[in-house]
C-alpha cells in the first residue's frame, strides 16, 4: 500500500484550476519530489494531502486514511514545512514549539532534543521576530518533527535561504529522510531534487506531466549515455572519424568532444583509437544525465513547456 495516493484529484479556486486530475503514488519510506515552477500546483497538492483542502473530485489517501473524511488521522501522521515558515513573532521559539507540541500531543520533553537536532536550541528563548530566515526554517523543521511524523511534506523548504543555509537544510532533510520516513519535497529548483529523489513528478498547470524515478526519466528522455573526452591538442582529433555505436554530440574545437554512445562499453575502444591516432588523452568522463537535462529534454521532446 502506498503511503500517499492521489487518484484523479481536481481542485479549483473560483475560475482557477489549481490541480487537474492529478494521480500520484508515493511509496512508504521513499522520497518523492514535486518539481515545477511557481503556480504548478505543488502547494495545493500538499494541502490536499493533509486534508487542509478538500478536492472537488477524486480522492486522497494517506497511510490508508481518507484525507477528506479522516483528516485528523492524516494530519497527526504528517509533519509539514510550509513555503513561508510563519511563526508567532512575539513568542519565543520555545513558546512556539510548546504550542505545536500541545497541539500534536507530542509532549514538551521532545522540544529540547529536536531543536538540538536542527541546530536551533541556542535560540529557543529568543523571540522569533528576531530570527533570521535560516533560523525560522530550522524552527519550522523542528516544529514539523516534534511528533515524529511518518510522513514529511516539505514545501520549498529552502525558499529565501542563502546558499550555505540552503545546503545545510537540504543535508538535514537528507539525513532525516534516510530514517525511513516518507518524504514529499516540493521545489522549483532542479539541483535540490538532484540526488535526493526516489521518484520525481514534474508538475505544470496542476498536472503531473511526467512521473518516474530519475533513472527511468533519464532513460526515457536522455536515452543514450554520454562521455566527454579531452585531448591535449585539438589537431589530434582530425583523424578521429566516426565508428558504429557513437556519434559526436559536440566538439568545442579546443580538444573537447562530447560523444553520445550506444553503450559505455565502447569507451575503451574509443580511447584505444584515439591513442592509436597519436592523441594524448587527458580526460575521459562518462556523464550521467542530471535532472536538469531530463527536465529540459522532456520539455523539448514533449514540445510542450512544463512551465504552467
Amino acid at each position: 500500500m502506498p503511503a500517499i495516493s492521489l487518484s484523479r484529484v481536481t481542485k479549483t479556486f473560483g475560475p482557477k484550476l489549481a490541480v487537474d486530475e492529478l494521480s500520484l503514488e508515493v511509496s512508504e519510506g521513499s522520497i518523492a519530489v514535486l518539481l515545477g515552477p511557481n503556480g504548478a500546483g505543488k502547494t495545493t497538492t500538499v494541502r490536499l494531502i493533509t486534508g487542509a483542502l478538500r478536492p472537488d473530485s477524486g480522492s486522497v489517501h494517506v497511510a490508508g486514511f481518507n484525507a477528506s473524511t479522516q483528516g485528523g488521522e492524516v494530519r497527526s501522521r504528517c509533519g509539514v514545512v510550509p513555503p513561508k515558515p510563519a511563526m508567532y513573532e512575539r513568542l519565543t521559539g520555545r513558546e512556539n514549539l510548546r504550542f505545536a507540541a500541545d497541539v500534536f500531543g507530542a509532549g514538551r520533553k521532545t522540544i529540547e532534543g529536536t531543536a538540538e537536532k536542527f541546530g536551533i536550541a541556542h535560540a529557543l528563548d529568543t523571540n522569533v521576530g528576531g530570527y533570521s530566515t535560516g533560523m525560522r526554517t530550522r524552527l519550522a523543521l523542528t516544529r514539523a518533527f516534534l511528533h515524529d511524523p511518518e510522513i514529511l511534506l516539505l514545501d520549498e523548504p529552502t525558499a529565501g535561504l542563502d546558499p550555505e543555509s540552503a545546503r545545510t537544510v537540504l543535508s538535514l532533510i537528507m539525513r532525516l529522510a534516510t530514517e525511513g520516513r516518507t518524504v514529499v519535497l516540493c521545489t522549483h529548483l532542479l539541483h535540490e531534487a538532484e540526488g535526493v529523489a526516489d521518484r520525481v513528478a514534474m508538475m505544470a498547470a496542476g498536472q503531473a506531466r511526467i512521473v518516474g524515478s530519475p533513472e527511468e526519466l533519464a532513460n526515457r528522455f536522455i536515452g543514450t549515455p554520454r562521455v566527454v573526452i579531452d585531448v591535449a591538442k585539438p589537431e589530434n582529433l582530425n583523424g578521429f572519424g566516426t565508428m558504429d555505436g557513437f556519434e559526436i554530440e559536440a566538439d568545442n574545437g579546443r580538444g573537447r568532444l562530447t560523444l553520445r554512445l550506444d553503450s559505455l562499453d565502447l569507451v575503451p575502444d574509443i580511447v584505444d583509437r584515439l591513442v592509436a591516432s597519436g592523441a594524448k588523452v587527458r580526460r575521459v568522463e562518462p556523464l550521467g544525465a542530471t535532472l536538469e537535462d531530463v527536465y529540459f529534454e522532456a520539455q523539448r521532446q514533449t514540445k510542450e513547456p512544463i512551465h504552467g
Binding site: E73, P82, P85, A86, Y88
Partner: peptide, 14 residues
Amino acid sequence: ERGTGEFLAHSPLT
C-alpha cells in the same frame, strides 16, 4: 496574513 494559519490548517485540531 501572518501565515500561521497554515500550521493550524495542517494540524490535527478540528
